[in-house]
Amino acid sequence: MSSSRYRGRHRGRHARPSEAPLTQALGVVRRPTVTAGLALALVGTGAVGVSANDAVADSEPFALNSAASAVAALTARESADDNSRISRDRSGANAQRAALGAKAEAEAKAKAEADAKVAKAKADAAAKARAAAAQKAARDKARDSAIANAKKDPRAAARAMALDEYGWGDSQWRCLNLLWEGESSWRYTAENPSSGAYGLPQSLPASKMAKFGADYRTNPITQIKWGLWYIDVSYGNPCNAWEFWNNRYPHWY
Rank of each mutant, 00 (worst) to 15 (best):
H251P: 08
L64V: 14
W245S: 03
S59H: 12
W252K: 03
T218P: 08
A55R: 09
W226V: 00
G182N: 07
S79H: 09
A206V: 04
I147T: 12
D215A: 07
S51C: 02
S145H: 11
R88D: 13
Q135E: 15
G46Q: 07
A214K: 11
V29E: 06
A68H: 06
S79A: 14
K128M: 13
A137N: 12
K109R: 14
G227A: 10
L228R: 10
L38C: 05
A106K: 15
S18N: 02
Q172E: 09
L38F: 07
N53M: 12
Q24N: 05
G196P: 03
A95V: 12
D115W: 01
A76T: 13
R77P: 01
K208E: 09
Q24G: 00
G196F: 01
A142W: 11
A98M: 06
A102Y: 06
A57S: 12
I221C: 07
L100P: 04
W168F: 02
L38D: 10
K208W: 08
N246A: 01
W173Q: 03
P205V: 00
W186M: 01
V118C: 08
K103E: 15
I86R: 14
W186V: 02
K111S: 13
A146S: 14
R16N: 00
W173V: 02
A119W: 09
V43N: 04
A70I: 09
S51K: 03
R88K: 14
